[in-house]
Simulated assay, not measured.
Amino acid sequence: MPALKRHTAERLTRILDAAREIIRETGDTGFTMKDVAVRAKVAPTTVFNLLGSKDGLFYALLSRLLDDLFIGVRRYVSPDPLEHVIEATDFVVDAFLSDPIVFRELFLVFLGTRDELHRPWFLHRSLSFWRHSVEVAATSKAVPPESVESDVLPRTLMLGFIGSFYTWVHGDLDDEGFRTQALYASALTVLGASKKSNQSRLLNRLSEISRQLPRQHTFLRHLTPGSQRGSRSDRATRLHGASESPGTVQGPSKAAATTPRKGVKRPARR
């Protein structure tokens, strides 16, 4: 590698290491680019020149962290191709739990922003990960090959995992709850796509996982108005009002609908 490229790569590594250390120590992404530059012992302009923006920094760090994940999952242990999905799920959960503070904070940024530059790249890599987990199953026809070729099965696996992951990122699932919920979603998805001859084996696997599922989630407390004084659901009930029946969204009151807000003129009737 030419000296200039090597020097640039070394500075980039120091910058990303510095950002990761700051997130891990503070549990926050509210630092400045100058904070990173000081920790990395580079000029602030160097950080901007190499990464463009703070979002660019976050995505570069996330990309580096995910590189190990995508490389490591290439090696499956089980001879059963349907188990590869379970292994892949277990592997990716282990990866996120290996540095939970950093991953949670990065994904709180990622999941909370619309980014046409970086998000498509991430989703493409994520879909490739799940596609790889079912390639052997498709080749051996343990699942319909067309479900993989059309990306229906990989996409469903990806979206099922994102649900558990999103809940964990926001702190409503603990680490083991995240693992078992993600494994259950993956096993259930593969069960739905598999041949009948494989379904009894998958049902047994699903039963094993279901026994480890959390019986109570933190976020379930927030779904029952007044179940916990001062809880988010309690505050939401005061703000929005309780529905007359479960699943019914109560509209604005008649008074609210007919009384104009201050500063808003009601159009004259014709």
Rank of each mutant, 00 (worst) to 15 (best):
M1S: 14
A3Y: 04
A3S: 13
L4M: 09
T13G: 11
R14S: 14
D17E: 15
D17Q: 12
A19R: 09
A19M: 14
R20A: 14
E21W: 07
E21K: 15
I23W: 02
E25R: 15
D28R: 15
T29E: 04
M33H: 03
D35Y: 09
A37D: 06
V38L: 11
V38C: 02
R39M: 08
A40R: 03
K41M: 10
K41D: 14
A43N: 14
A43F: 10
T45H: 04
T45E: 13
T46Y: 07
T46S: 13
F48Q: 07
S53G: 07
K54C: 05
D55A: 14
D55I: 08
A60M: 08
S63N: 10
L66I: 01
L66K: 05
D68W: 12
I71T: 07
I71P: 00
G72S: 08
G72T: 05
V73Y: 02
R74N: 06
S78K: 00
E83I: 00
H84N: 00
H84Y: 00
I86E: 00
I86V: 09
I86Q: 01
V93C: 03
A95Y: 00
L97K: 05
L97C: 10
S98F: 08
V102A: 03
R104F: 04
L117V: 15
F122E: 04
H124N: 12
R125M: 08
R131W: 07
H132S: 08
S140F: 05
S140A: 09
V143L: 02
V143F: 07
S147Y: 04
V148M: 02
V148S: 01
E149T: 01
D151A: 14
D151H: 08
V152I: 06
L157V: 05
F161Q: 00
S164H: 07
S164C: 08
W168P: 02
L173P: 01
D174M: 12
D174Q: 03
D175L: 10
G177H: 11
F178Y: 11
Q181G: 03
S186T: 02
A187F: 05
V190N: 01
G192M: 13
A193G: 03
S200R: 10
R201V: 05
L202K: 01
N204L: 10
L206N: 03
E208M: 12
Q212S: 14
Q216W: 09
Q216N: 13
H222V: 11
P225V: 12
Q228P: 00
R229S: 13
T237D: 14
R238Y: 12
G241L: 10
G247M: 09
G247Q: 10
A255D: 09
A255G: 14
T258R: 09
K262S: 15
R266Q: 11
